[in-house]
Every structure is written in C-alpha cells, then in structure tokens.
Simulated assay, not measured.
Amino acid sequence: MDASLFLIRAAAPEPIYRQIVGQLRRMIASGQLRPGDTLPSVREVAGFHAINPMTVSRAYCLLEAEGALARLRGKGMAVAAAHRRAQSEDKRLQLIEPHLRDIARQARELELSSEPVLRRLGELLENEE
C-alpha cells in the first residue's frame, strides 16, 4: 500500500487530518482495507502529499484510539485485527449522511430541484476522479 491511497485536498475546508481519518474509516467500513492490512508510513504520506508529518500522525493516532488501527512494532500501523469486517450498506451510508445533508441544504438554498442534483451525483459516482 502506498501514500497515493489518500486524496488530500489542501484547499478544502475540512482539516487534512480529518480528510485522512474519514477516508480510512470509509475504506475500512467498505472492506477495501482489511484487518492486518498495513498503512503507508507517516513519513511516506507526509512526503508524497507535502504535508506536515504531525498531521498524518494525528489522524493515525485518532483511529488507533478508536480501535480501528493497531501499531505493529517495526512495521507501522495496520487495520486492527479485532476490527469488524466490511459493514452493512446502512452503516456505510451513515458515514456520508452529514455530507448528504449538507448537499441537500445547499441545493435547497440554490433552489435546485432534486433531478439535476441526483443526475450529477450519479455522474460523479460513475467516474473515478
């Protein structure tokens, strides 16, 4: 696994460490990352994305405190062996619920009907960026 695993948007309003935490939570919840899978080192991620190593370390430590990641001596961080396998679709949807609510609120503020918003969302889901 390499540091390109993460999509970091420096200009996004969400802090970088939260971007990393959210992406890892989703990858673990979906089963893309399985128990025992090792993560790229803090140094690798920081160097690849030109970000502060403490930012990456903070994200990893938060997930370790939650029990999602485990520290392996001499090998770095890995998805915790005790962590559940891929979660149900309902559980995974809960992870994006706040973002969906934000999109719905913004669409209402812009007086957009659901049809073009859902069509665009469908297009975005079809295309990997």
Rank of each mutant, 00 (worst) to 15 (best):
D37E: 05
T38V: 08
L69V: 10
M77Q: 09
Q19G: 12
G74I: 10
V42Q: 03
A70M: 09
G36P: 02
Q94D: 14
I8M: 06
M77A: 13
L7V: 15
A68T: 03
S4T: 13
I28Y: 03
V45S: 01
K91A: 15
S114F: 02
S88R: 10
V56A: 05
A50I: 01
E115N: 09
M54S: 14
M27T: 00
K75M: 10
E44R: 10
G47L: 08
R18L: 15
R71C: 04
Q23C: 10
R120A: 11
L121H: 05
G74D: 05
N52H: 12
L39D: 04
R58G: 00
R108N: 08
A50S: 12
G47P: 00
M54L: 12
D90H: 04
I51W: 01
G76T: 08
P40R: 00
L93Y: 06
P35F: 04
R18N: 11
A80G: 03
Q32L: 10
D102M: 12
Q19I: 08
R34Y: 00
P53A: 01
D2T: 14
A78K: 03
E64Y: 11
Y60D: 03
P40E: 03
Q23W: 14
A104W: 04
M27E: 14
S57A: 14
E115I: 07
M27K: 14
V21D: 04
V79T: 07
S41W: 01
D90W: 01
T38E: 08
A11F: 10
V42A: 02
L124H: 06
R25K: 15
A11I: 07
R34C: 04
G36Y: 02
N127D: 09
V79M: 07
A59R: 03
V45G: 01
Q87M: 15
M27I: 00
A107L: 07
E126V: 09
I28T: 13
R105G: 00
G67R: 05
A70G: 09
D2M: 06
G31C: 09
G74K: 08
E111T: 14
L121Y: 08
D102T: 11
D102G: 06
E97D: 14
G31H: 08
A82G: 10
R73S: 13
E115F: 07
F48L: 02
R71G: 04
R92E: 12
A78P: 03
I103M: 15
G76V: 07
V117R: 03
C61F: 08
M77L: 13
A107S: 14
L110D: 09
G67I: 04
R73M: 08
R43K: 13
P40I: 01
M54P: 00
E64A: 14
Q19A: 11
Y17L: 06
Y60R: 02
E44A: 15
K75H: 11
A80Y: 06
Q94T: 02
A65V: 10
A81T: 11
K91G: 01
P15D: 07
R9D: 11
L121R: 01
R43I: 09
L93G: 01
L93P: 01
L39Q: 03
A11H: 13
V79N: 05
A80T: 06
A11G: 06
A29G: 11
A104D: 13
L33V: 07
A65H: 11
I8R: 05
N52P: 02
L62G: 05
L125T: 07
I51Q: 02
V45M: 03
Q94H: 04
L124T: 02
D102H: 11
A3H: 03
R85L: 13
V79P: 09
Q32P: 00
I28A: 15
E129F: 10
P13T: 10
I96P: 01
